[in-house]
Amino acid sequence: MLKISNLQARVESKEILRGINLDIKPGEIHAIMGPNGSGKSTLASVLAGREDYEVTGGTVEFNGKDLLELAPEERAAEGIFLAFQYPVEIPGVTTINFLKTAINQIRKYHEKEPLDAAQFLKLMKEKAKSVKIDDQLLRRSLNEGFSGGEKKRNEIFQMAMLEPSLGILDETDSGLDIDALKIVADGVNQLRSADRSFIVVTHYQRLLDYIVPDFVHVLYKGRIVKSGTKELALELEEKGYDWIKSEADALEASMV
């Protein structure tokens, strides 16, 4: 589904991703962990097409297409969804209006007829129920005045509405208490299916108790320095990142 090869990216003159390789098959959940500043969120942003980053090398293939050639909205239409670490507040645009526009733009991209108001509302009610988000919240301006938990739940709700084939969760657990975390994880688990994959970017193992990954990768200084299964996450939780850092630094030093 997604094949990242030797991906390099920088912001201004700072190299952040220095050769990422990652292969994700349909239905798999990959966790990306790593210390602060290792490039986790950058990877998520580059995949979604954020303009602040310049891709300087490598390729990303998504369902047979060159992802890096596509505008962010085209990536969304092709099935990429980024759940933001900091969802943006947009005054004056309700979540309902926002999502109706989004869904119909994506349908237009696929040359499908737009949903009418009744069809849209039916879909919305169904999905809101499944991710346990209050209808009233959706009638308010997008994320404006929402609590941290409400914002993250809204991200998962949007994901449920847009039904992507690859969901990228960028530190979705940050700032959530355990109850909010469970609700969010629940929402994600409901969306798991044989043809939908996830990349779960997180600093802590905590989220992975609830969203159990198939693979865990550790990112450090812009490279994946270790990969394993869910047990690797537990090991990191116990031992911290220092041992990985020294291993990776020693390896890099030996290569120079």
């Binding site: 954020r50 303009e51 909205e73 969304a76 969804f81 926002f98 989004a102 869904i103 991209y109 847009l162």
Partner: peptide, 8 residues
């Protein structure tokens, strides 16, 4: 960008 990432 947020809106674009949702397909708009």
């Amino acid at each position: 960008f947020y809106m674009q990432s949702r397909g708009i």
